[in-house]
Each structure stands twice: as structure tokens, then as C-alpha cells.
Design a protein around this nucleic acid. Structure first.
Lengths: 226, 226, 226, 226
DNA sequence: GATGAATGAGGCTTCATTCAT
DNA sequence: CATGAATGAAGCCTCATTCAT
């Protein structure tokens, strides 16, 4: 069954020029469709967006959408995965540039609120709203993405702890990681989607990071008072 | 066209006994339907739950559901409002019993993670998943609920600040309020819905509260005690 | 899940008059739809008949068709079963009126070619053409129907043998039963569907029966020469 | 518009060697596609088999299939014709080798049940199931094939009658011919497709032939020997 | 008030066929 | 000749909502 073949590298040693071009065009078209779907899902909602609308916006036929994607759900899953990957990359890079100190978290907050949010509000809507509770498959991907983000944050927190003293409780790192994600989620949604206060995002990010830093320090052993 | 009359109090000075009984039965039935819908929405998802399914579970006919609720969306909105009201009450009570100190936040965290979460996991699913991005009307209600919860938290934080010194930034209180809500949301969802770790909820709540306390202190100008 | 409820007897001791009427109307409507589908399937072919056409012909909406039948396949299966049941009844009755002799077969042939064929050509098309190879489920029902018809014929043949002497081979009865069914099938199809020679049906039936009688006798022990 | 040229013999007096090779390759490819389609139609059903599936199995592209065949229906028609031709040849040969006596029918039965059936079950499925009621064009070809088979059988029966005495009725020969075809059809389908009793096929064929012989004799005016 | 049969617009998906490369 | 991406009409089915009884 040769169905829904995603671009595969040719086995040939040197693919012909035209083959390369076709390959490129294929990926472009796939991304065009994905973008169209992403925009519409964020703007109109997953359920209220019909496949025909997506095809129209991507300037292809319905059949073409189905040539590149198994079904509507597949479209959402791919979009979700792409966004999750992007987000992880973004935060992961921030952590790497300042490992072992709280500087990593500061950078991550800054890049999230000052870069990601204003530039990709539709991805915020997608990952934090449209992908919620749509189907078992989508939910599974969502869980995986969130789990990975939490794991990354947890790792960053543990490397901080390695420098500044252990955490006071068994779950502290995991709880903080999930908390930080929750904060980012609700703050972005609150200031970007519900209220349109892009101009406040920088300040929000600063306060959020300070809040996080205070919270993290309070869960370290070296600190005494609570 | 038939109007959707919701149960209204009789204007009579002293309603007859049978009128009272009817009134009570009416409210009971309404709540039965609401409960059925809530359970199904949380378990199967809003869109995958048909009106007939709800009627069946409530042991009434489809027509009856439409007698009590304008439409399916109305069902979700009512459910959402009810849950929001409950949550606000719960947290508001916690704040009142220890106003002006961080003790209010501690109590709120405790009651949320140790009472609300384990007893109403379906309400967590409803308010944090099923009500997300279903329609403009639902989203508006959702926004209102979240705004109120944030406002409540903000008020509580400001009364803390009144005791312990002002916050360092204009937005601090609002940001912290939204952050706390986001934390509760993601933590509850993470530990209750995605993983089934009810037994950890207490510890999670403790760490979350400590995290919050640290965060709040870090955003105060003067920070001595809690 | 209270879906696709077929008319069920009320549990009440004495169903109200209106309930009885509704029940009757329900069965009538179900049959109306079934008839519409049967006619169209036979005339246009199962695959070339859309659900909308069926609904139109039955003067109901598409939704109503789906209220009474699970899906298009269900429609075909019910039709097939009904036809199979009818056919079995018809032949079975013929056998009963003359058990133990070849007279049963004669009667069965007569009733098939002179009653069933001219009166229900669309059922011939349905059972011998449209139901062939449409899906696993349909094929299973088809097999069951044919198996039963063959079993009935076999029983009749064996009761003949009980009178006139055993068959010469282990499989003889089964083979003859299937053969007779095949004969009826192809003859009906040939003279009724492909050529429109209703006027010949009677003669065809007579010859067919004589052929069968000769065949049966030739497989009995009592006869010597082959 | 492109025309669908079927491989035609070159008009040249002596085609070049390479032309010959090309011609051969063309026919091979055509047959490969036909075989792929035949297998899939028999196994999965005509409607449930997509053109892409056929192309895959034949290891060519969809476009290539359309180069050799006008459309999907054409594929089925060609397959059907091929099978019909094969079957006629088979039976015709049997008749020729023993003309004028019932021996021809015996041979035909033997070759059908002992050669054709076990070796080409997929062709049984194709001619007796998949080609039924698919479209007017297919049905027309099917009718033509059956008509020819019946005509052949009728001829054989009449040559028997010429030896042994006339048939008792005007339609007898035609009825018997159609009957025999129906018997073969249903028996093959019953024992080969529905039940997998290849091992019984020989015995089935013997009984069937005896049945036929008895039947034929019973329709002759004078009946002595076979 | 309650019932549940009926509605029909709208949604997703398939697949035979075409045609530029 | 061969390819396979693109097309889009057509099909099946769901389900929120209505309304006569």
C-alpha cells in the first residue's frame, strides 16, 4: 500500500535536477497547506474550519490536501508537532546558552514572550486552544509535546539545583517545570489572545521571570525562610 | 416560535404547595441533565457527545433537554458557569479566612489540590479542556470566568502587598494572578488527567504553594517574613 | 446507546391506541423505504443508487433513512434477508404439501417460475445480481441464505430418497440441491432479466422440473443405467 | 485529446527486430496489468480495488494503466472477455472430442471441475461474482459470454438429440443449456469460494454430470442408452 | 410539559481520471 | 512512453434542532 507517501530521499546516488525540483515543490506545497490550515484553525477554530476552506486558502483542490495529509486530524497533528518542535527548540536554545544558572530561565522567558508570542500568536492559539480535546490522537500528541517541554524545563531546573543546592522536595523540579509551562500558557493566552496587549508582553515576561526565580529559590535548600 | 422559558419564581405571594413541588422537580431535572452532560462532555468530549446521548443518560427525551436548555452550547455554557462559580467560591472562601497574608494563597492551593481536584476531575476536564475554543459564546464565558478568577487572585495579592510592601512593577499583581491560575490549571491537568497521580496531588499542592510564595516575595519591594 | 431501535413491543399490558398507531406507522415507513431501495437497487444497481435517491423515492429525508437503517449496507442486507425469507417460505410450502415424493420438487419449480419470477423480477435481480460481491457483510448474508435454501432442497431430496432408494454417492443430495438452486438462478436470470420472455417462463419451469426429475432419478440406486 | 491506441500489429511487411521486441514487451505489460487487476478484483472486489492499487501490483504507474486501458471498466471487460473465451475454449474442446454423444458433456464437466476450478478460482470469482451488476457495459459483455456458453451447450445437446431422438419440448435444449451453466456456476461457487472443499470437486463433478445425464435423458422422447 | 420521529444542511473522504513533465 | 501529482464531483453519514402528538 503506497499511500500518503511523504517526501522520501531518493535512493539514487545523485538525483536528477528535475527530481530535486519536484521534491522541493512538494515540500513547499505541503507547507503551504499546513500554513493555510494553521491560520484557519487559529482564526476560526478547528471544527468550524472545513476542508474546502483550507484547500481554497492554500489554492489547491480538496483532493490535493488529501494527497498530502491522511485526514483533517492529521493536519492538526502535524501542525501541533511542528509548533511543539519549534517551541522546544526555542526554549532549549535559551537554556543551552546559560546552563547551570537561572540565567537560562530568564532567557527562555524573554524569548518566549518577546519573540515567540508576538510573532506567532496563531501558534499560541493552536497549541493552547485548538488542539485541546479534539480527539484521542491529537490529545496524545499534545501530551507528548507538553511532557517534553516539562522534561526540558525540569532538566534545566535540576542543573540549576546542581549549582545552588538540592530542591527541598522529591517532586519540586517536576512541579516547577509544569508550573512554568502553565504560567507561560495562561499569560500568553491572557495578554495575547483574550486581551490584545502586545505592548505589555515584555513587562509581563519580566515579571513572570522574576516570579519564577523567586519561586525556584524558595524551593532550594539553601534558602531558609519560606 | 416557542420561547425557552427558564424556571422562574412564581409571582404569587404564597405559592401553592404543588407549585413548590413542581418547581423543585423542575430544578432537579435541570440539574440531572446538566450532570449528565457534564459527565459526558468530560469523558467523551463536547463534540463527540450527541444530544441524544445526554438525554439518554439523564433519562429524559431529547425534547425535554431542549425544554430546559436553548441548545447544546447553552448546556456547555451553563456547566461552565456553574463550575466557574464553584471554583471562585472555593478559592474566595480560602482567601477570606486569612486575608492580608500569604496564608490565603496557601489555603487556596490546599483546597484546590486536595479538595477540588480529587473530587471533581470531570470539572477540571470541562473548564480546562472541553470549553476551550468551542465557539465565540463559550469562549466569552470562559474569558469572563478566568478574568474573575484572576481578579480575585489579584485582589488577594494586593491585600498581601498592602501588608508587606508594594509590588515592584505595575503589572506584577495581574501577572502573578494569571500565573497562579495557569499553574493550577496545568498542574491539575498534568497530574490528574494525563497521569493518574492523585496520591501526589497533596505534595504537588505544597510545592506549588511554596513556589508561589517565593515568587510573590520576589516581586515585593520589601521582603522579610511571610 | 439507544440507536437504531427497531419497532419493539411495548412492555405495557395494553399499549395505548396512539402507541399502536405509531408502531404501525413506523413499520409502514420502514417498509416504504425498503421498497424504494429495493426497486432502485434492482433498476439502477446498488452502487449507482445514492442514499438521496432512495430517500426521494420513499418521500422521506435522508436523515429518516438513517433513522431506520444503520447505513446503506444495512438496507441491502435487510432487503436480502427479506427476499431470502420469502423465497424459502415459498419453496418450503411447496415441499410440505407433497413430502416424500418428487411432487414437492415439481410444485417448487412451478411456484418459483410461475409465481415468484413474474411477480418479483426485482427480487430476482436483487438476490442474484445486486447482492453479489458488495461487501463481506452482504456476502455473509448471501451465503447464509443460499446455504439454507440448499439445506431445504437437500432435506426434500433426502426424503425422496427415503422413499425411492438411497443416493449413489455421499455428496449426491448436496450437489443436486446446489444444482437445482443454480438452475433456478440462471434460468430466472436468463429468461426474466436478460431476455424478457415472461411468456416462456411456464414452459421453462416445466422443462426444468423434468430435467431435475430425470437427474434425481439417475442418482438413485434403484435406477440402473446412467 | 489523446487516443487510446491498443497495441496493433505493425503494417510493415517485415517489422524490424526491435519493433518486434517492443511489441512483445507491450503485450507482456498489458497482461501483467490485467493479471494484477484480475487478482485484486477477485480478492478485494471490483469496487474496493482502486486503480492505484492495481498499478502498484503491476509495478507500473497509474498513467501507464490508462495507456493500456481506457478506464477501470475496460479492465474488467477485458478480463471478463478473456475468461469467457478461455472457458468457451475449454468446454468447446471437450465437446469436439466426443461429439454426438453425452460423452461430450461428461468431458466438459470433468475439465471444468477438475481443471478449471482448482486452477483458476479467481476467474470463478470474477465471472460469477465481480462482474455481476457493475455497469451496463459490463453486464452486456457478461450477457454475451453467457449467451455464447449457452449456445455452445445447446449445440452440443442438439447433436446428442440428433443421435438419440428429439427433445420433448421446444425450449428443452435451451433450458437445459442454461441449467447446466447455472449448475456449474453455483456448484463452483459453493464448493470453491464459499466452502473451501477443493478435494470434493472431483466427486461433485461426477455427481453433477450424472445429474445432467439423467436430466437430458428425461427430456428425450426416446431414451435407451447414453 | 414531555416525547421522539423527522429533518436537511454540512461535513469528511474517496477515487477514477487527466495531463504537464 | 512513463510518471504521479492534481483534480473535483459525488458519495455516505452525522447530528443539532424542530414540532406534531
Amino acid at each position: 500500500m503506497k499511500q500518503h507517501r511523504y517526501p522520501v530521499e531518493k535512493d539514487q546516488a545523485s538525483p536528477s535536477r528535475s527530481a530535486l525540483r519536484r521534491q522541493r515543490e512538494r515540500e513547499q506545497r505541503l507547507q503551504t497547506i499546513l500554513d493555510a490550515a494553521g491560520t484557519l484553525f487559529a482564526r476560526e477554530g478547528y471544527h468550524r474550519t472545513g476542508m474546502e476552506r483550507i484547500a481554497d486558502k492554500a489554492e489547491v483542490s480538496v483532493g490535493t490536501v488529501y494527497f498530502y495529509f491522511k485526514n483533517k486530524e492529521d493536519l492538526l497533528v502535524k501542525l501541533l508537532d511542528q509548533t511543539g518542535y519549534e517551541l522546544r527548540n526555542l526554549l532549549g536554545t535559551a537554556f543551552k546558552n546559560a546552563d547551570g544558572t537561572l540565567e537560562g530561565l530568564r532567557k527562555a522567558g524573554k524569548v518566549f514572550f518577546e519573540d515567540f508570542c508576538p510573532n506567532h500568536p496563531e501558534k499560541i492559539a493552536l497549541i493552547f486552544r485548538e488542539s485541546a480535546g479534539q480527539s484521542e490522537v491529537v490529545e496524545a500528541h499534545r501530551k507528548k509535546i507538553f511532557d517534553k517541554l516539562i522534561a526540558d524545563l525540569q532538566t534545566a531546573l535540576l542543573s540549576v539545583a546542581a549549582n545552588l543546592g538540592a530542591f527541598r522536595s522529591r517532586l519540586a523540579a517536576e512541579v516547577m517545570a509544569a508550573s512554568i509551562l502553565g504560567m507561560f500558557e495562561r499569560l500568553a493566552y491572557h495578554y495575547l489572545i483574550w486581551q490584545d496587549r502586545q505592548e505589555d508582553l515584555e513587562a509581563v515576561g519580566r515579571d513572570a521571570v522574576d516570579f519564577i526565580v523567586g519561586g525556584v529559590q524558595n524551593l532550594l535548600h539553601t534558602k531558609q525562610k519560606s
